[in-house]
Design a protein around this nucleic acid. Structure first.
Lengths: 200, 200
DNA sequence: GTCTATAGGCCGATAGAC
DNA sequence: GTCTATCGGCCTATAGAC
């Protein structure tokens, strides 16, 4: 069984939108990448905008959805949760390193609809998650913990373009760096426990 | 003395490019923001592309140039250097929080020219900087130290869109969070010294 | 230097044949 | 469902008047 035309378009759209962003991507790029006729993009998805919103929603779920079921579990310790989240994120981000930068960058533009906003709110205001994360360091606010927790995990992937597109390192060296980075991240997240915002 | 037309265009271009990225920005937006006639953009800067490259170079210097003179100083301790870098970055990024995301995102596209690449290389391969930073943790490679050092400082600003555009927090709350974040970042950078990539 | 007007090309979207 | 052809609009860039 081959892939349906509709799915070919979606697969191509994922690649092109992530690569070039909404305004940099052309429906012609997507059609070419999918190996189908330009008119079919509109036939199946009505407009570039509709297609983009579908991809965006999917990617937000992929990026933030990973974290919910793990952190909300009731029978694991906080340390186990952290290790599992770091594990899962590195698996995901090694496959799609551009994901965090794509999502964050498009969130900044006004392409957002209320559906996406609500999805984010559900994640960040989930009471179980807030409660468990707070155990990490009671001196810090929920947002600080959340911001630093997520930030420490994803920043190696966000900073990738600095090192790779400037040819300071290449793709292979980046992959090697990331293997060590995983251990660093794991320890760094746990060291959030030691931080006291009162002292300097 | 008023501002020259040429400068008005550059000031407007900074704002528009940072807000919308290269492909999302229109020369019409820039002209309107500058309060001048559309044709003058091309009169003074020949093309959108030329103007963009000027802004980009300026912003890369702003973002990465800050770090060089501080880290290369010979008469300050590593801890003093870290504190000064964190200080300077927070001053800068409180004024232009969108700066890191803008630069990194555009680096990812192919808009780069060799001039910019070279500038990055000069920074990341400066022997003094490499030597001093390595004192922080001899168990880690230069790139790991550099990546984590820069990453820890800038990720609060990069993750801003996640929290702000989803209305989880607003601009004022973000500013308040950032004040505490500065202390966290300072301690987090120093805790890189304790990390051992061997253990898990 | 600054304006108006427009060229020229690209892009999203659709009409209509098969 | 898939194609070709094309429309209409927008965007960068420039020609030419002042």
């Amino acid at each position: 069984m081959g892939i349906s035309t509709q799915d070919k378009i979606k697969i191509a759209a994922r690649k092109i939108f992530i690569e070039k962003g909404y305004s940099g991507a052309r429906t012609r790029d997507i059609a070419e990448e999918a190996g189908i006729n330009l008119a079919l993009v509109n036939y199946y998805y009505r407009s570039k905008d509709t297609l983009f919103k579908i991809i965006m929603e999917e990617k937000i779920d992929e990026l933030f959805g990973t974290i919910i079921p793990i952190l909300a579990k009731k029978d694991t310790s906080l340390i186990e949760k952290i290790d599992e989240v770091v594990d899962k994120y590195f698996d995901l981000l090694l496959k799609v390193p551009e994901l965090p930068l794509f999502v964050i960058n498009e969130l900044r533009q006004e392409n957002i609809n209320s559906k996406i906003v609500n999805r984010l709110k559900v994640i960040f205001e989930n009471k179980d998650i807030v409660k468990y994360l707070n155990e990490l360091n009671p001196n810090l606010s929920n947002y600080h913990i959340m911001m630093n927790f997520i930030g420490i995990i994803i920043f190696p992937f966000i900073s990738k373009p600095i090192f790779v597109s400037s040819s300071i390192i290449d793709q292979n060296e980046f992959s090697a760096l990331i293997k060590t980075q995983k251990g660093i991240v794991s320890q760094l997240v746990k060291s959030l426990a030691l931080i006291n915002p009162q002292i300097k």
